[in-house]
Simulated assay, not measured.
Amino acid sequence: MNHPSTDTDTSRPLRILIADDHPLYREGITSVLQQYPEFDVVAAVGSGREAVEEIHRLTPDLAIVDLQLPDIDGVAVVDEIERSDSPTRTVIVSALDDSATIYRALEHGAQAYLTKVASGQVVRDTLVDVAAGQTVIPPVLQTGLVKEIRARQEVSGRVLLTPRELDVLRLAATGLTTSQIAGKLHVSVPTVKTHLRNTYDKLDASDRTAAVAQALRLGLLA
């Protein structure tokens, strides 16, 4: 996602879109934000598709998006924004506070995650921080998120590549062709292809580029 600058234009209010299918919450958060001169609520919608359409049309600075929307969920909205390279930053709000859900939202590109019991002041401070380029997780949610990250790292650590598979992947990461890798390792081209296919399967990757990226993310090529 392209966020070319973390500097906000302090000469104008931050333009906010709200997406929530519960009218009471949608109207309530709109009312809260309207109390702050630094915000301008430019749209309030009740579905994910409406949110995507209005974000494309209005390009707000920030979007507050409910996780559980009736058509596409909040994470799917974030995905749509990411793919369109929109500068709009997203804050997911939800009644859910489990660490796996929070991790998923952040993994897909949300800049903050708030529960629906967050106070108006917390929402205000979060929006200002996100507009300034920060990722915001309330302290009450951070411990669970850290545990989730560690648990996922432990699972990732179980991805075991053989020494030869690692050799092949390291050379692939340098941009060598299959035949060049075979020459370097003094093996046949079909053997290299077999090793690559095995790494794709183990890393759940569709091609060489994805396999290298996943291996780097997991620290396997360090």
Rank of each mutant, 00 (worst) to 15 (best):
L62T: 14
V91S: 11
A63G: 12
A100R: 04
S99N: 00
H56W: 10
D97Y: 05
I81F: 10
D66R: 09
V41T: 13
S99A: 04
D71I: 13
D40V: 07
A51V: 09
D61L: 03
H108G: 13
A105E: 04
E50H: 13
R89F: 15
Q34H: 15
E50N: 10
L58D: 07
R89L: 15
L62G: 08
L33D: 11
S86K: 07
A105K: 02
V65D: 02
V32D: 08
Q35I: 10
I92W: 00
Q34R: 14
I102H: 00
V78W: 07
D85Q: 13
A100L: 02
F39P: 01
V42F: 04
V32P: 04
A63Y: 11
G28C: 06
D85A: 10
A63T: 12
L58E: 09
E50I: 05
I29E: 04
L62Y: 13
A44S: 14
A110C: 09
H108S: 14
L69C: 15
P37M: 00
P87I: 13
A105N: 06
A110K: 10
I55S: 08
G28D: 07
V75E: 01
D79W: 03
P60C: 03
L106V: 05
S86W: 09
R89G: 15
A43N: 08
V42H: 09
E82M: 12
S94D: 07
I92C: 03
V78L: 06
V77C: 01
R104N: 04
